[in-house]
Computed example of a mutant assay.
Amino acid sequence: MDRVIISREQQIKDAAIRVFSKKGFNGATTKEIAREAGVAEGTIFRYFRTKKDILLSLAGPYIVESLKTTLINAAGKSDEAVLTSIIKNRLELIKENIDLARLLFTEAQFHPELRENFTENVVMRAAGVLEKYIDERISSGDFKAVDPRIASRALIGMVGAFVLWKEFLLGDKYISFDEDELIKQLVDIYLTGIRAEEWEGGMGS
């Protein structure tokens, strides 16, 4: 029974991405999403209260849960390895879900309530996961005593700038970056700025 419920919910989400991508958030209706998913419209409301809830549900698990999993898998490794895993995960996540990313980026500009919900329930939660990691490294003396909230958003901003360049501005037409080298240099730049001056190797070295 659980397998059927999970499958049906995912079926609706997959259909929603296709419909939202074609018609935008305003233009899409739950009736069209139901038709695309091959279910009755009433079935949608067994899983989601509103169309907005469908859109928000698409982003949360991908962005927040995958970040938690990445940090768990990287536990005990060097900061270089941890940050490399985080950045690689974020870039792969965007590539695998580029239609959803473009949809959220576009619709958030025109729907303040959607933007606020996305910021509160997805962005702030993801930033909180990074803040915890950074705070732990500060407590261990490996990172400078900076504000973890600022440091987490600095990392998000570095990665976000290159996602914007490649996926939204199509910047590869002008300058193309090797992804492995990009990740390596972003990690180096970030750690150069945040590591404690007396750092001598730290975790996993």
Score class of each variant (00 low, 15 high):
102 R>F: 08
174 Y>H: 11
81 A>F: 07
85 S>D: 15
62 Y>V: 07
59 A>H: 01
108 A>S: 12
199 W>S: 12
85 S>V: 07
154 A>N: 03
162 F>V: 11
48 F>R: 06
39 V>M: 05
159 V>I: 10
71 L>R: 01
75 A>G: 01
143 F>G: 04
142 D>K: 01
139 S>Y: 08
193 G>Y: 12
137 R>A: 08
157 G>K: 06
168 F>C: 04
179 E>K: 02
141 G>W: 02
22 K>P: 03
44 I>D: 05
182 L>A: 02
9 E>L: 02
168 F>L: 12
167 E>R: 02
38 G>Q: 15
140 S>P: 04
174 Y>V: 15
180 D>F: 09
71 L>C: 04
115 R>M: 11
84 T>N: 14
125 R>A: 14
193 G>D: 12
189 I>K: 10
10 Q>Y: 08
200 E>R: 15
172 D>M: 08
147 D>T: 06
142 D>H: 07
144 K>S: 05
189 I>E: 06
77 K>Q: 14
94 I>G: 00
2 D>K: 12
124 M>D: 08
41 E>H: 15
144 K>Q: 10
26 N>Y: 03
135 D>A: 13
155 L>H: 07
121 N>D: 03
186 L>W: 04
42 G>H: 13
135 D>F: 08
205 S>M: 11
24 G>F: 05
52 K>Q: 11
173 K>N: 14
144 K>C: 13
37 A>F: 03
196 A>D: 15
132 K>Q: 10
33 I>L: 12
27 G>Q: 10
112 P>I: 09
9 E>R: 14
32 E>P: 07
182 L>P: 00
12 I>N: 03
81 A>S: 13
47 Y>Q: 05
69 T>W: 11
164 L>V: 03
86 I>N: 00
134 I>R: 02
136 E>L: 11
124 M>L: 06
29 T>P: 07
127 A>V: 07
159 V>Y: 08
184 K>Q: 15
73 N>L: 15
135 D>I: 06
139 S>N: 06
194 I>Q: 03
161 A>D: 10
64 V>G: 05
185 Q>R: 15
